[in-house]
């Protein structure tokens, strides 16, 4: 009997693959997508204005109306997306020269050291890193101490720029690594061909290297952008400018699940749009 089964699988390799993947895929679709679906359903349920209780399957668009009628929601969405975009651009601007140095200039020994240096922060706890930044940024913190001789004081923990800085720090490795891998994939002979044809360093970078790094940059930006859009701890701990996540958190803490769920549509739709663009840029082939 056992033999017959193994024989059958041998002749039907795709069935083998399906059987093997059924477990994990089933888990993802039921547990992960199922719970997401239930969460998003809340957005269309009404809430008893007197008891404050959610009334399941009592369909309404009240939550969306509430969000659209209040400009604060718009400001917060725009701020979150704007900071996420800024974090992505900054990370790309830092990652390009760093990855270029690692992939093309550094000796094998330095390259290994730098790779460790880039990945090491990923091993440290996310919260520990944020608290470290708090001690740096607070008014009488490390930064304030360092610039005090110039009559300046630390930025404190209210500036929105702090979120930009700390989020860039947190997600930078996710940009450096794909860009580094993308640079490694460009054969040296292409750079030599460019120089041979008269292209100086900058032209070679702009016309030969950069266009071939677009898939890698798009791949890295998926991480920096989506992780920034979804973050609510950094904006809470280093600044007082709320992100989408903070609003969702606050609303669910107050029991306004429909509003929280309705607002969740914003980052989800933005990310779907972003992923479609990234796919066109070839990001998924370079992950």
């Amino acid at each position: 009997m056992m033999r017959r089964i193994t024989g059958w699988f041998n002749q039907h390799p795709r069935a083998t693959l399906r059987a093997l993947l059924a477990g994990p895929l089933g888990w993802i679709s039921i547990v992960y997508l199922g719970s997401l679906f239930i969460l998003l359903m809340h957005a269309f349920w009404s809430k008893d204005s007197f008891t404050g209780k959610v009334e399941p399957f009592n369909w309404t668009l009240d939550a969306f109306a509430q969000i659209l009628s209040n400009p604060v929601y718009f400001t917060i969405a725009a701020r979150t997306i704007g900071i996420a975009a800024l974090v992505t651009i900054t990370a790309a601007a830092i990652a390009l020269p760093v990855a270029y140095y690692m992939a093309r200039i550094a000796s094998p020994r330095k390259r290994a050291l730098l790779l460790v240096a880039v990945t090491m922060p990923l091993w440290a706890s996310y919260l520990v890193k944020i608290y470290a930044w708090r001690t740096i940024l607070q008014t009488n913190g490390l930064l304030g101490w360092a610039i005090s001789p110039f009559g300046l004081e630390g930025p404190g923990l209210t500036e929105i720029a702090n979120s930009w800085l700390v989020l860039t720090y947190l997600w930078l490795p996710y940009m450096i690594l794909p860009v580094y891998a993308g640079l490694e994939r460009i054969p040296n002979s292409l750079l030599e061909a460019s120089a041979d044809l008269g292209g100086r360093g900058w032209i070679t970078f702009r016309r030969v290297i950069f266009p071939q790094l677009i898939p890698a940059l798009a791949a890295g930006s998926i991480f920096t952008f989506s992780l920034s859009i979804g973050d609510y701890i950094v904006p809470d701990l280093v600044s007082d400018a709320k992100f989408i996540g903070n609003v969702i958190y606050d609303n669910s803490a107050l029991g306004s699940f429909p509003v929280a769920a309705a607002f969740s549509f914003v980052p989800i739709l933005v990310m779907i749009g972003y992923l479609l663009v990234a796919r066109r840029l070839g990001a998924f082939e370079s992950l």
């Binding site: 030599e192 061909a193 460019s194 266009p211 071939q212």
Partner: peptide, 20 residues
């Protein structure tokens, strides 16, 4: 002199065409 200042051109063994 660097390659871009020499009046020679190369046909590479692996062609080295720009894929993009």
């Amino acid at each position: 002199l660097p390659p871009f200042d020499r009046d020679v051109n190369t046909v590479f063994q692996d062609y080295a065409l720009f894929p993009h």
